Simulated scan of single mutants.
Amino acid sequence: MEPGTEFPADTGSAADVHDPDPDAAAVPLPPQHVLSAAGELLRALSAPLRIAIVLQLREGPRCVHELVDALGVAQPLVSQHLRVLKSTSVVSAHRRGREIRYELLDDHLLHIVEAAVGHAGEE
Results as ranks from 00 to 15, higher is better:
Cys63Gly: 11
Ala14Gly: 01
Ala14Glu: 05
Arg101Lys: 04
Ala25Pro: 09
Asp23Met: 08
Ala93Leu: 10
Gly39Asn: 07
Val27Glu: 05
Val64Pro: 00
Leu77His: 11
Val17His: 05
Arg62Gln: 10
Leu29Lys: 06
Arg83Tyr: 07
Glu103Lys: 08
Asp21Trp: 08
Ala25Ile: 13
Ser36Pro: 00
Asp10Ser: 06
Glu122Trp: 02
Ile112Arg: 04
Arg96Pro: 01
Leu109Ile: 15
Gly12Leu: 03
Cys63Asn: 11
His18Ser: 13
His94Gly: 02
Leu77Ser: 06
Gly60Asp: 06
Ala116Glu: 07
Ala74Cys: 01
Glu122Thr: 13
Asp21Asn: 01
Glu122His: 05
Gln80Ala: 10
Glu103Met: 11
Asp107Phe: 10
His81Lys: 08
Ala52Asn: 12
Gln56Trp: 04
Thr5Gly: 00
Leu82Trp: 09
Val17Ala: 08
Leu29His: 11
Leu110Asp: 04
Thr11Trp: 08
Val91Lys: 10
His119Ala: 13
Leu41Ala: 07
Glu99Cys: 01
Pro20Val: 05
Gln75Ser: 14
Ala120Thr: 08
Ser13Val: 15
Gln80Glu: 12
Ala47Asn: 13
Pro3Asp: 07
Leu82Gln: 09
Pro61Phe: 02
Ser92Trp: 11
Ala14Arg: 03
His33Asn: 12
Arg98Gln: 14
Val117Glu: 12
Cys63Ile: 03
Arg83Pro: 05
Leu109Met: 05
His94Met: 12
Asp21Lys: 06
Val17Arg: 06
Arg50Phe: 02
Glu66Val: 00
Ala74Ser: 13
Pro76Phe: 01
Ala44Asn: 09
Val64Ala: 15
Val113Thr: 07
Glu40Thr: 06
Gly4Cys: 03
Tyr102Met: 01
Gly39Leu: 08
Arg95Cys: 02
Thr88Gln: 14
Glu99Met: 03
Thr11Cys: 10
Pro28Gly: 02
Pro48Asp: 00
Ile100Tyr: 11
Arg83Cys: 04
Leu45Asn: 06
Val90Asp: 08
Pro76Tyr: 01
Ala38Ile: 10
Leu82Ile: 15
Glu99Tyr: 10
Tyr102Phe: 15
Ala14Ile: 11
Glu40Tyr: 01
Leu71Arg: 04
Val91Phe: 11
Ala44Gln: 15
Arg58Gly: 01
Gly121Leu: 03
Leu85Ala: 09
Asp21Ser: 00
Arg96Tyr: 08
Val91Gly: 04
Pro8Asp: 05
Thr11Tyr: 07
Val113His: 04
Leu110Val: 11
Leu105Phe: 00
Arg62Asn: 04
Asp107Gln: 15
Arg58Asp: 01
Ile100Thr: 11
Asp106Val: 10
Val64Trp: 00
Val84Gln: 02
Asp107Ser: 15
Arg95Ser: 15
Ser36Tyr: 04
